[in-house]
Every structure is written in C-alpha cells, then in structure tokens.
Design a binder for these strands. Structure first.
Lengths: 350, 350
DNA sequence: GTTAGCACTCCACTAACGGGAGTGCCAGCC
DNA sequence: GGCTGGCACTCCCGTTAGTGGAGTGCTAAC
C-alpha cells in the first residue's frame, strides 16, 4: 500500500497522494480552501467526505496542507507544493500547435539580445506572469576580435567583438598617448594570439603571458597585454531581461501593497534574482522554487520555474517565470522547458 | 479688490485666493478633505467658518474645489491645482546645504550616461517619488569619429563615436564583402568630410552628397556614403532612465491595483512618457502637468514636474518626477529645477 | 458683509445576527 | 479495522441597524 520513489517525504499511502494531488489541483484552479465535500466529488476515489476528512487530518499532521482556520477547507503548504511538483504533477505536454506558436517567436535573423528579449516577453505573454532571462556572462563568451581606437590624449576605446556578434565597448585611460598606427599594431598582435578564447580564458592567459613577455622585453606584446588587461578588468555586471512584471499585480494573493513593492524592487535591483538564477545554471532541466524555498523572503507567495539555456553545448544562462505559488505547474513547466530548448536552438543556429 | 496677473481664470478675490491656497496646502499635507472649521483656524484671515463656507461654495461653483460628498470638506480639482501652481504657490528655495548635497551626486569624472542615471535616482531619492530622465536624442549629438569593421562576409560593424564620448554600435548588411583596408579607406574619407556634424545634419548631408558623388563617379565616396547612410538609417529609438517607480506604491491615492498596473506599464512601455516629455523640451524652465492635463489617462492621480537640461547651450533632454497630484509642489519644483541645472553643468564641464 | 445657530446629510465604525461551509468526533455498519 | 452518516461546534462573511462625528447649507440677527 505504501509507495516507493517517494524519497525524502514521510511515507504517504497511494490514496493520500491522490487526495493531495486532487486538493492542490483544485486549489490552484479555484484559489479557495478545499473542503472534504468538494474533494469527495472531485477525486475519482469515491470516498465519503468523512473518510476524506480523516486523510486530510493526516496530511495536515505531516505538514502537506494546512487550514487557514478551524472551519475552512485545507490549502497546500510549501512542502505540499514541493511534493506535488516532485512526485504528483502530471505535466501535459504542449500541443504541436502551441510549440509552433512558440517557435514562431524566434526569428531566424534576430540578434542574440533580441532573442533573449523575445524569450522573456513570450514567457510572460503566454503564462500571464513575469518572464525572466539572464544574459550570458560575458566571461563565457569567446572573443572574436579586438579593436583599439584612440579617443583623446590618454583615452582608448576598446571594442570587443564576441563570436555571437555581440559587441562591447570599454573606454580605458592610459599613461601615455598612443597613435592610431601603434594601436593597430598592438591590436593585431593581440588578435593573433588571443582571439577564439573565452573572455575568462583570456584573462587567465594575460596574467601568465605578461610575466613571460616582460622577461623577453617584448615591448609590443607587453603593451598590448597591458591595455587589454585594463579593458577586461572592468567587471561587467551580470544582467537579466525582465518582462511582464505588471502581470503579477493581477494575482490577488499579492494584494498586499508592501509585499508587492518589495517584489518590484527586487525586479529593479536584479542582483538577488540573478544570484538565485545562478544556482539553476548548475542544474539541468526545469528547476522550481516554491515560496521561501528560494531563500529570498521577497518571493513570499511566489514560485520560480526556471531552466538553463546553452550555446555550443555549454550552459550560459537561465530563463524562467515568476508567478504566484498557486500557478498551473502542469502547464508552466513544459512551457519553460520548451522555451529554453527553442532559445538554445535559435542561439546555436548559423 | 480683484487681482490682475490672474490670467485665464475666473476672477478671484484676494480672500478667495488665500483660502484656496490654504486649502490646497492643507490638503497636500493631510490628504483629507478640508472643512471650513479647519480653514478658519489655519488661514490667517480670522474669519468664521460660516463665512469661509460661503467662499468655498463660490470656489466650488467656479470649479477650483469639489466635495467628495455632501457632508465632507473640499478637495482641490485639477483646475484648482493648476491655479495653485501658476499663481499661488510660494516655492521655498533650497537651502544651500541641500544644494551641496545634490551637487555631490554629480561626480566630476562620471560618464554622461552615469550622470543621467544619477540624476534620475537622486530625484527619486529626495522626492520619494519616481524620477525620470530622457536620454539625449542621438540625432542631436555630434559625430566625432566613425569606424568600419568587417565582421563576417557581408556584415560590417559601424562604430559611431560621439563628441561626449558616447559610443554606438550598429551592424549593417552589405551586398558584397569589404576588405579591412577598403573599409579603412572608406572610413577615412567619411571622417574627413563629416566628423563634427550632428547626426541629423550628417543624415541631411548624405542625401545631398550621394547624388553629387554619384555624378562625379567617385566610387569611394559613394560607397562610404552608402554604408554610413545604412548605419544611420536604423532609427535609434528614444529612451529614458526611470528610478524609484516603486515609491509610488506607497501613496494610498493609488491603492487601486488596476490603475497602478497601468501606470507601471507606462513606465515599461516608455513610449508615451517620452512623447510627453518631448513637449517639455520646447518649453523653458520647470513645467508641470496635473492629472489628465498631460493627455494621458494613465497619469490619473499623478502630476509630472519636469525641466529640460542642455548640452552646449542646446536643450537635449528632459528630467522630472512623477508623483501623486497631492505632492509638495513648493518643495519639488525647486528640486527639479536645481537638478536640471546641476545636470546641465555636469554635462558641460570638461 | 459677517456671524451664530440649527437642521440635515453622509460617512465610518461597531455590534449583532444569521447563513454557510467545514471540521472533529462518535457510534454504527460492513 | 476501515468506512460512513449524523451531529454539534466553530469560524467566516455579508447584512443590517445604530451611533457619533464632521461638515454643509440655510436663515435670521448683528
């Protein structure tokens, strides 16, 4: 009667599982505490309300559900959702029509950044929640080409062209002026030796090589390395694209203005959300945080459904949605999953 | 007894003006309808509540105030605020200490973009409302230097260096591949002829010159112009920096979630707000929109206090704050004014 | 023109009430 | 032992009624 594969949770009978599932599905749909009568009708188990009450009482003791007050139905706890997501939910795969709709969002000839923005707004659009996509860390990008341009006396514009056609500008200050030709030579040297490596690899190589070249008294090499090192030093802060935050305002469980405010501040601040998403980069496939599980109190009544996307077989970023804990996981999970795959595909073509 | 300089409004007696002023100041401070008794105490006029009731009744007939219901005090109408702002408010100039505090925000060696962001967040910080700063339209910027870099076969990276060290990248597609040397020559030609002009002037000149050079069959010139024209064609959409939107959530007059949502969508969409601010560019000094005066229904219970800022003596952008109509104009007006001046100063130094 | 007084209105708050939904427990049934 | 029907009990929520306060408009008197 007791079921395996239910690791980490207090053992639940088959019946209790089914009831928990039915309860959560019902609650997700209605948003109101679910009572025994309702459940008796809903679940296919053909049990009387009284029996169900007994089971529910057990579920409450185990911490899967709770009653807002004595004479109300039960609502899921965080642990309840967790269990539901891990073991009980039956994700319904997207219809091929829906996949096509999604696919259409990712134009062939869009720039990488456009693709990410598209992914974010698409996620928010079809889920009616907030969509998020982290930008790839430039450190992971590989460097295709470098250009040094003199701006004024002691200021040089360094242009980094990444292999996925992303371009970054940095302005650096130098001790002495450089002529256009000189800079051209330096850039040539640099491109010969370092292009094709990832930014972080370049950083590493520079540290080693600068010692080396200095020993050989190779002035060009040393100077080129110094300039490049300066440019790469300016840490590029991580960033993310957010879309459809305002959707969250429509969920009444967040009617608390103060809480809503904190949430929106988190969207603006980004830092915390990014470090949350960084955790996901290490995982594979869809990952879900329910409520405070994320470690951020701001996400009180929210869940995060996320999945990493990759370029050249390597995970470079994460996308996902943020919505009320009471979201339709069975629908959102495949959407996030498929979007991540489609984004990965779009980024890797050509 | 009747006062001049009160153009465009139904004539108001000195006393009525003073009462209107007192009423609005009181309402701004308390947020609650103001009754005759309160006003009798507040205003220095030493009038009995009954007398004040008569005046208030007149003010209501003239559309300056209204009563939410029969037995409540009066609150200002949009027209009332307008009159208050145009004729009645006594702005109290900032203390020199406050100016210094503000001044400290604008570091000497910050980039233009950083300055704008600083201005926005400073405005939001001291007013506890939302701060906005429009970015200068690139068209107004003058072009310092152009660089063409080959990316792949038919893609060229065009780098535009503006005179205030702002850098813009554009990737364009061409019919045939160009070699690095060839591009260098084209850029040289272009820089000789066009650098120093404003972007919009360059655009204008290109149209004329392309005809001209074509007639001379000057291949280099024509090609250079064609490439540049392509790059400049990609319209740069106007943009703005917003800070502290979430501050607005604390004003209870916006407790209506749906309205709040529309407002935040406007912040994200930006387009509308920018076109509102565009109007301000043509005006001089602080300009204020009360409620729907702005022409945007979203700004229902909001006012906009704004002022243009300039570079090289020419207005290039606008900054301001958005907050509840019930804001402390006498404080906000000088803050916006001074911030605009300080930003202008910071952008023009060096 | 100004004021005091008065009747009237409307809101906001509180208390009381009843219906509804749901629970827990118990006794009886299979 | 597990399931069920019945019943008393609890709590919420919406409605109603009542009350006090704040403010107005009007009128008559100064």
């Amino acid at each position: 009667m007791f079921v395996g594969g239910f690791v980490g949770y207090p053992a639940l009978s088959e019946r209790a599982q089914q009831l928990l599932k039915a309860l959560i599905e019902r609650y997700i749909q209605s948003g109101e505490p679910v009572g025994s009568r309702t459940l008796s009708r809903d679940s296919r188990l053909d049990l009387s309300p009284a029996t169900i009450r007994n089971v529910m009482s057990d579920l409450e003791d185990l911490g899967f559900v709770k009653a807002p007050h004595t004479s109300a139905g039960r609502i899921p706890t965080v642990q309840g959702y967790r269990c539901f997501i891990d073991c009980l939910v039956t994700v319904k795969p997207l219809e091929s029509r829906e996949v096509l709709d999604l696919q259409r969002q990712f134009h062939k000839d869009a720039s990488p950044l456009e693709l990410l923005e598209r992914a974010s707004s698409t996620l928010s659009g079809i889920t009616k929640m907030a969509g998020l996509v982290t930008l790839p860390r430039p450190e992971r990008n590989s460097l295709k080409h470098v250009e040094f341009l003199p701006l004024t006396e002691n200021r040089i514009l360094v242009i980094l062209v990444m292999n996925d056609s992303e371009i970054q500008n940095r302005v650096i200050h130098t001790d002495r002026p450089f002529s256009r030709d000189e800079l051209q030579r330096l850039a040539n040297y640099f491109n010969q030796h370092y292009s094709g490596m990832s930014l972080s690899a370049v950083k590493g190589a520079l540290v080693r090589d600068m010692e080396e070249t200095r020993r050989h008294a190779d002035q060009i090499m040393t100077t080129a390395c110094e300039i490049a090192a300066k440019a790469l030093d300016s840490e590029a802060e991580a960033d993310m694209v957010v879309a459809g935050q305002t959707n969250l305002m429509t969920y009444l469980e967040m009617a608390d203005l103060d809480r809503l405010r904190q949430l929106f501040e988190a969207f603006n601040e980004k830092r915390h959300l990014i470090s949350l998403f960084d955790q996901v980069m290490r995982a594979q496939g869809v990952q879900i945080f329910v409520g405070e599980e994320s470690g951020y109190q701001v996400l009180g009544d929210c869940s995060v459904v996320s999945a990493p996307y990759s370029v050249d077989g390597q995970v470079v970023g994460v996308l996902g949605v943020i919505g009320p804990t009471r979201m339709e996981y069975q629908r959102v999970i495949p959407i996030v999953d498929v979007t991540a795959r489609l984004l990965t595909a779009a980024l890797n073509q050509d």
